[in-house]
Nucleic acid binder design. Structure first.
Length: 491
RNA sequence: CGGGAUGUAGCUCAGUUCGGUUAGAGUACGCGUCUGGGGGGCGUGGGGUCGGAGGUUCAAAUCCUCUCAUCCCGACCA
């Protein structure tokens, strides 16, 4: 087969770029750092959205929509928050264009300067909390549990398709609670929703944990994260859930009358996942032949490629294929019968492999004669000729197998690439030679964390939630530590 | 914002060192034909302000000046 992708072993990030383009997921646009998400890529995102949206609603959330623009003054209200985002904000200063007096196109009309500049949202805490202020007076108004599907803009210096773009799509949940405990519970609930989504749907094993102070969201008291390991040994932060304490309530003066008749500040959370999940999905499973998609998120789960010479052969094959299509549709399986006569079978095989379609059926005159069908699975590239009779049940089982198999493969990979180290030298050695997650003791100080980052570029991805306590000594300073934390190079 | 590089057909690039016919190739695209169980073969055709502006010259993709854009490395990146 013609090689269309740079092999992973040669240049991993080139492979990633090639894959995104060749699998028709997205491309760079005329706007630097902003991508066009193409129909096939968007179809995957839509499947993700559908599942997540259901999960949010099942945990008691409602969707709403807040403005794209945020008055500049809102950003001065929460100090840590503005520190985190100020350097990457797009700012609207004018509201009108006019014809260039020199006749060279259009120019910004200097007379149309805004009284107060508007910030294109990098995240919506500020606009939402300024709104919540009007919605909340009493404990009877709580909790408020809202999600919005939106685009946000962060003016990044260097961008990569899906992984870091200037504009990206995401969902952001913003909740308001009566008590600290209720807000913390919400934060944990949502990180669990994310981790369940990653593992069950994306077939992506993730580590759940909390961020250190250095890595925390700007304005949060605690940031919970799910961290995934990519095939090149680098970590990808895939979703975060923040316990915001009363920071935003205080910044926007959101108080409520409690049951006891006291005036109290509201407790807050926010949580989000973005189109970066697309990047995670692509990198986690795919190979040098192209994308490998988990069946649960594949826009096309089964594709049927007819093989024929002449019109009458096409008719026979087509009839059989259509029978399978309707059976699979009845089972809620997304199936495509590719009867496009303008492309050759060989071309189609390569194309659907590149696009990660989990199961491919080929049906030709030989199969029609023998009552068989050729079934190829994308994850292992195995081909098998099976009886036509009952093929739909075979396919359903196969889809489940593939979903499980790619999860296991990713799980085993992570296991092999998670290393415990007890000295800083060993840490550096593993980081350099192997990469992956590195479990080490750390003294809990920001200084030590920063030093490690400066010296090795590795960061603490999280303090894992489910690891058992273990007495030890910080690998750098030798000070006591009660638990290992997870280090890695990160995207 | 520092360091490096690149702009030539839809895409990937050659040609620029050392100025000289009508600017090329692969791929993609159109047509014809043979084909069809892994990106097929043969024939044929269309497609270019050589990033932009200015300059040098009999002559500029090629030399000079300016400019714009993009990419890579760094800084930056809940």
């Amino acid at each position: 087969m013609a090689k269309v992708l740079t092999p992973r072993s040669e240049n991993y990030s080139q492979w990633y770029n090639d894959l995104v383009l060749k699998a028709d997921l997205a491309e760079n646009s005329a706007v630097r750092g902003s991508m066009v998400i193409k129909p096939y890529g968007y179809a995957i995102w839509e499947k993700m959205q559908r599942v997540l949206d259901r999960m949010f609603k099942d945990t008691g959330h409602e969707n709403a929509y807040f403005p794209l623009f945020i008055p500049k003054s809102f950003f001065s209200k929460e100090a840590a928050h503005v520190d985190g985002f100020a350097k990457e904000c797009a700012v609207v200063t004018h509201y009108r264009l006019k014809n260039d007096p020199d006749g060279k196109g259009v120019v910004v009309d200097p007379d149309a300067k805004l009284e107060e500049e508007l910030i294109v949202r990098p995240t919506s805490e500020t606009i939402i909390w300024s709104t919540y202020k009007n919605w909340i007076q009493s404990y009877r108004d709580l909790p408020i549990k809202i999600n919005q599907w939106a685009n946000v803009v962060r003016w990044e210096m260097r961008t990569r398709l899906f992984l870091r773009t200037a504009e990206f799509l995401w969902q952001e949940g913003h909740t308001a609670h009566e008590t600290k405990q209720e807000a913390i519970d919400e934060t944990v609930t949502m990180i669990n929703v994310y981790s369940e989504f990653a593992e069950k749907y994306m077939a992506l094993p993730v580590l759940k944990g909390v961020k250190t102070e250095n890595e925390r969201f700007a304005g949060a008291l605690d940031t919970y994260t799910i961290e995934a390991l990519m095939q090149d040994g680098k970590a990808l932060q895939s979703g975060t859930s923040h316990f915001l304490g009363q920071n935003f309530a205080k910044a926007f003066d959101v108080k409520f009358a409690s049951k006891e008749g006291k005036e109290e500040y509201v407790w807050a959370t926010s949580w989000g996942v973005s189109t970066r999940l697309m990047g995670a999905l692509i990198m986690a499973h795919s190979d040098d032949n192209g994308l490998v998609l988990p069946p649960k998120l594949a826009p096309i789960q089964v594709v049927i490629v007819p093989i024929y010479r002449k019109e009458d052969e096409f008719k026979q094959v087509s009839e059989v294929a259509k029978g399978i299509v309707s059976k699979l549709r009845d089972m809620n399986i997304d199936v495509k019968f590719d009867d496009n006569d303008k492309k050759k079978p060989g071309w189609k095989f390569a194309e659907y492999e590149l696009k990660g379609v989990p199961v491919r059926l080929a049906i030709g005159p030989r199969d029609v004669r023998n009552g068989t069908v050729e079934v190829a699975r994308r994850d292992t590239l195995e081909k098998k000729v099976v009886p036509m009779e009952g093929v739909e049940k075979y396919i359903q089982t196969l889809l489940d197998d593939i979903q499980e198999n790619i999860y296991n493969k990713a799980f085993d990979f992570r296991k092999e690439n998670t290393t415990k180290v007890d000295s800083y030298d060993e840490f550096k050695k593993v980081l350099k030679e192997k990469g992956g997650f590195i479990l080490a003791h750390w003294d809990g100080t920001a200084e030590t964390e920063q030093r490690i980052k400066d010296e090795t570029k590795a960061t603490i991805r999280c303090i894992p939630l489910d690891s058992e306590p273990e007495e030890g000594k910080c690998m750098v300073t030798g000070k006591p530590s009660k638990q290992r934390v997870v280090f890695a190079l990160a995207y």
